[in-house]
Design a protein around this nucleic acid. Sequence first.
DNA 1: CTATGGCACGGATT
DNA 2: AATCCGTGCCATAG
Length: 487
Amino acid sequence: MELASLTLYRYTKFVLPVVSMFQTHYHSLRPTTTAHLAQTMTLLSLTADELRQQIDSELASNPALELVDERRCPSCQRPLPPRGFCPVCSSPKADAPDEPVVFLSPREDFYPSGTGSASAEDMPEDNFSQAVEDLPTFVMRQIASELQPEDRRLAAYLLTHLNEDGLLTVSLVEVARFLHLPLARVQAVQRVIQRAEPIGVGSCTPQEALLVQLEVLSDTRPVPALALEIVRDGMDLLSRRQYAELGRLLSAGQRHVQEAVRFISENLNPYPARSHWGDVAAPAPSGLEVYHHPDIIISHIKDSCSDRLMVEIIMPVWGMLRVNPLFRKVINEAGEETKETWRADMDRASLFVKCLQQRNNTMQRLMQRVVVLQRDFVLYGEKQLRPVTRVQLSKELDVHESTISRAVANKAVQLPNGRIVPLSTFFDRNLNVRTVLREIISGEKRPFSDNELVDLLAQRGYEVARRTVAKYRSMEGILPAHLRQSV
DNA sequence: CTATGGCACGGATT
DNA sequence: AATCCGTGCCATAG
């Protein structure tokens, strides 16, 4: 299957460490407490994607481990609904109206499952997977019906070569040559892809993505003609925010340029796959700061007028893992030889289950506390972020600080507004100051120098040095005052 | 002379 | 122990 190559790519990334870890584990037959601790730590630091790999290899390599198609509430043992939380244990507690409901949410569609039926049609049609399925699948599902069957292969090929921003990593010419198809056909399919949500996905460059978005947008509402010209002819000036230059190039007045730029940054997105829009000048350090799948989803409880939050910790499997009870029975009937290895398998299985539970427990407690502390941030945005350190939290939860660090690292959270941010954002000590800084600058009448910005920030209660303002500015990709135009 | 970025130091965080 | 962060000092550009 075409999508399998994407999967394969991800697998290769983790296969090595996983394998070597198992070998070390195999030799320490007796699971001491340190082994327990070590594996819990390892599991804790894994993202949902990686956890899936880990579980898959455990299941494959250990016959004593079994995945049952049934879920029970860990605290009251009642059966759980296929998706969702325990209605008894997790229901709103009267004494804590602000506390979120935290629970594990299973996901079977994380990857196209083993046998590889990855076609878009048999993805389950529910709202949950809408929000969390990966980008290629999401796009494929929209366009499958518009394409000739023989073009779907081509589309799938293109979709597996998107980067984190939703742009193509291969040139159309290469694709045509590789698949032995006429270039025109590749272009036609690309055109279909670009028109799917997120609009502009599958373009080769940010510029192309913007052009497509402009075109689509112009069907439904008027688009400033100047915006089109800016994107088409003045892209590099635009990304450097050299608006004066732009005006000269297109012989247009400053006012019109401002207007068009404003339109562009409000309505277009040069990186279609990014969940946040605007901010044309973001230098896009092409890092790992953009995630496809969140590991945690925070949302409002649906159909509820209360403002309680729901926190889902993604478990990339259905059902639950346990030691196969049959295995226990048969073990005594086995010969001396096999008995030994089976015993080892069983120990490993129960250790794994225990570690997994502990991991999930820690994640739940962590998120519970974090969402309470950063409730305003979750609901009202970055300005409301409170400076919280991991150390502080580790004391509250009574775990070692490194536990928190591992749990926080490399995880992505989807906020109620749809944005996906790293979990470490919740521990960002100066994001709120940077947000205020951004606000001041975007609302400025005349470019403020860094020194003036120091005063303005101080007025709002943020005491920082001049040098620090400069740092924040560059972090936000904002040019120095003399290169900035008033907006 | 002013505004800003590079470098490096010390303290906090991980 | 390693890394991150805020800051001061200094060189450079305009």
